[in-house]
Design a protein around this nucleic acid. Structure first.
Lengths: 147, 147
DNA sequence: CTGATTTAGATGCGCTCGCATTGATATAGA
DNA sequence: TCTATATCAATGCGAGCGCATCTAAATCAG
């Protein structure tokens, strides 16, 4: 692609903004209506659940979920306060820590999933064929590079 | 498509979140580095510029750009303070108002565009072929419906 | 016409965000 | 080894967000 900005690129960008906002709003609303915490909590719990017993370092979480460092720090604060995750000093790095999910945290994530899945189905799954979803995922992956 | 949530849909959703976040961050950064206001200002100015001499009612802006009512109201506040737009009581509706872009506002939008275009080219245009961009725009449009 | 409902827009509130900075430790280079 | 630089995480700050609520005007129903 050359130096000019194609109209198609602008259209794709606008569609991207609208689609994300609209879908995100629906999903957050679903969580709220079910009296569950916001999506960011799910993301973090999910990564920690996957990470298993060793947990993750905050900077590893930062790489996996798309939240800035300072917000990761405070998100961990909030989850720690409620006992969904636990902090622990890192053995191998004196500056660092390890974050692990607790049993309660795992349970919360499990409760959140059906709500998430349902909302996702309505906002995304039901609107694209499997094939379309695959294409979209592939194309959009090209935009996710931070460079 | 049915009642189940396909893996492809989840992948598309995650890609959507990441792509939007990443691209948006780049664009906002570009504006900041050029010492220009954020994207939302551009969007609002652009709609008002297009609307011409009659301007728009705030609720019309709300339909066009993806910002909640209360935030539209405050965004107009900020732009009014700096003289980029002007409020005026609506003739036809005593509850309402008309918002119009000023000459300074038009000028600001004009200055913002090259920065925006450049960032958009880097974040989106250069990463998709024209054809891909079209496909993405078409598919994503299906997710933008608020219902 | 009157009262009830709806709609337009503003505002208070609490929360989260991004940025910049700080403090502490780790790593690299002379 | 000693110093400079880089990295990890926390925090102060100001700004913007979404929600709920409020006021005023418009619309609807009887």
């Amino acid at each position: 692609m050359g130096k000019e900005l194609s109209e198609a690129a602008v259209d794709a960008w606008i569609a991207l903004m609208r689609a994300q906002q609209t879908a995100l709003l629906k999903i957050e609303r679903a969580f709220r209506e079910a009296e569950l915490p916001p999506l960011a909590w799910y993301d973090l719990l999910w990564e920690l659940d996957r990470a298993g017993a060793e947990g993750l370092r905050p900077f590893e979480l930062e790489e996996r979920i798309l939240i800035a460092q300072s917000n990761i720090s405070r998100l961990i604060d909030r989850l720690t306060e409620r006992g969904y995750v636990a902090r622990e000093r890192s053995e191998e790095d004196g500056r660092g820590q390890r974050v692990r999910i607790t049993a309660t945290g795992r349970e919360l994530r499990r409760r959140m999933w059906p709500i998430y899945a349902q909302a996702l189905r309505e906002a995304v799954g039901s609107r694209l064929t499997e094939r379309e979803a695959q294409t979209v995922a592939t194309q959009l992956a090209k935009l996710a590079d931070k460079r």
